[in-house]
Amino acid sequence: MLAIPDFGPFIVSGLAIGAVYALSGLGLVMLYRTTSVVNFAYGAVGAVGALTAWELQQNGLPEWVSWIAAILVSTAISTLYGVLIAGRLSGRDQSVNAAATLGVALLMIGFANWRWSDTPRSFSLPTDDFGPTVLGVRIIATKIVALALAAALSWGTSVVLHRTDTGLAMRSLASDRTLSSVLGVSQQRFGALAWAMSGAVGGVSGLLLADLVRLEVRTLTFIIVPAAAAALVAGLRSLPIVILAGLGIGLVESCGAVFTSVSNYRGIVPYALVIAMLMWSHRSKSIAIVAKDGR
């Protein structure tokens, strides 16, 4: 080992994995802001889309067709859940809503392992073939695309939520379901729309994550934990902060690897930092006099 550790490659890699967390965290927060559900199945649904794309490519279909199919599959699953189940759970605790999405994740994991048995496979996008070299590390364009997509989504979502009537309706539903319904906002219609959008975004990120992380449903499902950490830092609201937090978590996790003696424990560090940060930001304790949904 070098006397002074070389952080260069780890910074570059950390930002790359951070972009993955940012993209997933963004998906979580987008759905949360429109439906107040944290979706544990977000990664799993994207993975099923990516596996569909992989299978279609194996059968000789053009890549672009397989990508569209992937996004359609993810959108369909997500919409179906939104229409059939999420709507009927809307009066329940947020934790219960989150737990129900674990049911979806299990359904997806079981289905994916049954349909696409566990043989070696990998998924590549054409953007893997080029890209710059920074600090001695090659960065494939897919990673840049992932980060750019996160930024674009963050901007686009803000525009939709704050500048359109649809966005207004979605936000009002998320903040108070009963009141918005009384005011004439259709829970079913906008709820389904929010889930469909989340599914489409999940499908796109699923393709990127399958390339950047691994085409394996469990791995992609449980990226949700660091992604949720990024979402928490942003208070489950601010999309730009989700991106920054995702990058930060990736960076901390990756740079911990420089210290080889404790590097197997390095995954704990970002979580500890996030919790400490939350403790600090919630240090002025408020007491709920009247508990309301979301508390």
């Binding site: 189940i85 009927r88 759970l89 329940r92 219960v96 737990a99 129900a100 674990l102 049911g103 979806v104 994740a105 299990l106 359904l107 997806m108 994991i109 079981g110 289905f111 392992n113 049954w114």
Partner: peptide, 16 residues
């Protein structure tokens, strides 16, 4: 794997 699927579906169904 099918059992995992059944289990996932049962979780959703019973919560509902």
């Amino acid at each position: 794997n099918i059992a995992t699927m059944i289990f996932g579906a049962a979780v959703i169904f019973n919560l509902l």
